[in-house]
Design a protein around this nucleic acid. Structure first.
Lengths: 188, 188
DNA sequence: ATTATTTTTTAACATTTGTAAAATGTTGCC
DNA sequence: GGCAACATTTTACAAATGTTAAAAAATAAT
């Protein structure tokens, strides 16, 4: 396990000693495309790191499903509210392809946070990086039109454009699929 | 300083020992209404906790200014990108009233993060709470219309409605001031 | 108190985006 | 191949929001 974690970007800042502590509570899992790894309204007990494949987080509304996050190689994947407040979350996470993941039980991870300074700071940085990315998206929604957001997405996530259904990308960008189609028809 | 921090919500989970370590690097400051405490495009060296008063974070666009955050009693206040990546940020933070704040130098805080397990986890939780709040807002934008977002804001932040200019609230809610006026005219 | 300045509302019109439904394209399976 | 299921685009129309400008109201300054 240790030698496997070593190759994943998110673990690279860690010393060998910290990595071993994490490796001791990690195990590798694989799940087929279509698996719902995290369920809304449940307190989910696991934290994952995506080794291979892609996933999306979405919430269910009245008559729509909103995708608000995509994860690729190296992304951390967890129920925000289970992880942060130990309560049921609002998001589902679906694997869009066959995925291999590192799985860590949240109780094990929390124990390490309370015991190991370096791992606590590693967890702090994970939250901070997610935070800054999420706030950037909120601000981009205000400053950029839908067409520009689409273009940014194409530029910054060429893999996702190829591999993810446009209906998911549309809701991620904050528009309907019809609007996204119109944008694509115009800007090419 | 120690006895002062003790009364601020955000410090309450801490043990006396940790609180003393933080108190040792904290100092109280006051600034008048209108002060720009954090400047966009600058690496800001301080972290603040708002003791009294209200503040907003905003970014400047071509011909508009977008407010994307409000802080009240107990809020943490810092340049995201200075704090997280030690680089210049994108936000300005303006005090909307005369404010008293606790000021901590980021270099001092980072030193504590690297020395003190409890404080590292305290910092982790700060980022996590901001993260979950920010993501909730992003999702609310997708599921709720502008009128409902306004009503939620009125319900959840009655103080801000009273004390903050509507033009700032409009951009916080993701609409123009004209649209907010229309919503207010209809829903009363 | 009066004037000046800023904020908020209102109006008219333009634009964008949404909704619903049909048409077309794609994928996988037998 | 051909059918079924699903994804994407297109069309026509409706609704929501934006833009610009001006009036009204509120706030601050002298």
């Amino acid at each position: 396990m240790y030698s496997q974690l070593k190759n994943i970007d998110i673990f690279k800042p860690l010393t060998n000693e910290a990595l071993e502590r994490l490796a001791a509570v990690s195990r590798q899992v694989e799940h087929p495309k279509g698996t719902i790894l995290i369920h809304a309204d449940k307190t989910e007990p696991y934290f994952y790191i995506l080794e291979n494949g892609i996933a999306r987080a979405y919430s269910d509304g009245e008559n729509q499903q909103i995708t608000f996050w995509f994860g690729q190689n190296g992304a951390v994947l967890f129920s925000f509210n289970s992880y942060i407040n130990n309560g049921p979350g609002y998001e589902n996470i679906e694997l869009l392809e066959h995925c291999s993941l590192i799985q860590i039980k949240l109780t094990d991870l929390f124990l390490l946070y309370d015991q190991h300074l370096e791992i606590a700071n590693w967890g702090r940085k994970i939250a901070e990086q997610e935070l800054i990315a999420t706030e950037r998206r909120l601000i981009d929604r205000a400053f950029k039109g839908a067409a520009e957001r689409y273009q940014d997405f194409v530029d910054q996530s060429p893999e996702l454009i190829k591999r993810v259904a446009l209906k998911h990308i549309a809701s991620y960008l904050g528009v309907t699929q019809v609007t996204l189609s119109r944008i694509r028809a115009t800007h090419k």
